[in-house]
Design a protein around this nucleic acid. Structure first.
Lengths: 151, 151
DNA sequence: TCTTAATCGGACAATTTTGTCCGATTAAGA
DNA sequence: TCTTAATCGGACAAAATTGTCCGATTAAGA
């Protein structure tokens, strides 16, 4: 459904949205620890978000990433997915026909269109802000809990 | 959404369902030409369908593939997807959390569950038979039309 | 019986996606 | 000013998916 890169991106954005409540800036180390993703790869994804202007970065010592508050204001899950994965989800034919359309439909074109539209609508109405609030309230999680071993 | 292998598999099954109306047996060459997919790779996918018992094969000269009519009787899109891609679609968390559940939900768990269930319901109610009828009636296609050049 | 055309399976190759490493640059703070 | 710790970008590596090739086997039909 979503690529790994996209999963990481969404989680990172949620993580930074949470941090932004106390104007905290986070290093890649922080972030990847918080969301339990491979550090270097997550860094690549962060770069993409920076280039898209959704996330700002500060170089040098004590540097890190923080979310662009203006853009974060009404940010939807869809926006993040778009930046990382593009709009394949919106257009791709279930059977992979490159020119699948109302005029030349694949056998499931009509019915699958509805499903796909529901999915896109879901992504478009889901606010990152609300997702981070859920995490803050402890109603949901961004990583699997790890058992602390003391030895 | 679906893997390439799965797209090919679904199209091959539709193709064989169409052929079965006249009890035609089809070689891999026939099939991959009909559905416009790479021959050798499609053969691998066919093997999987054979092992699953959905498709029968005849070796030797004039051999080929034909669909198991009994199994094809009430065959759903879901059944084919299951054979090729397994049931990832049914269970996978949108954010990739391996243990995402009602007890430990990711931030979109609740709402995405609905979307995923709709998708699965769609796959489960969609009959391969009906899809092939559409192709027979010329209402839909399995491959992009190719322009015939005469030179 | 021999040739031919088909599936079958395993090995291999190419491509894409995921993941790592490292050197360059940047800026903070001692 | 120097050390340290951070991002940035490019090159590289590993893994997964997609795709190809070929030899073995099988069976039809001349």
């Amino acid at each position: 459904m979503l690529s790994r890169a996209c999963e990481y991106g969404v989680k990172a954005v949620i993580c930074l949205t949470i941090a932004s409540r106390e104007d905290r800036i986070k290093s890649i180390g922080d972030i990847s620890r918080n969301i339990q993703t491979p550090e270097a790869f997550t860094a690549k994804v962060l770069q993409k978000l920076v280039r898209a202007g959704l996330v700002n970065s500060i170089k040098g010592k004590n540097g890190g990433f923080y979310i662009n508050k203006e853009k974060a204001e009404n940010l939807k899950l869809w926006d993040v997915v778009q930046i990382i994965d593009g709009d394949d989800l919106r257009y791709r034919c279930l059977l992979g026909l490159s020119n699948c359309s109302n005029a030349k439909p694949c056998p499931v074109h009509e019915s699958y269109k509805t499903i796909r539209e529901d999915l896109v609508r879901f992504l478009k109405r889901t606010e990152i802000k609300i997702l981070s609030d859920r995490v803050i309230r402890g109603e949901s999680i961004l990583k699997i809990e790890t058992i602390l071993r003391t030895n």
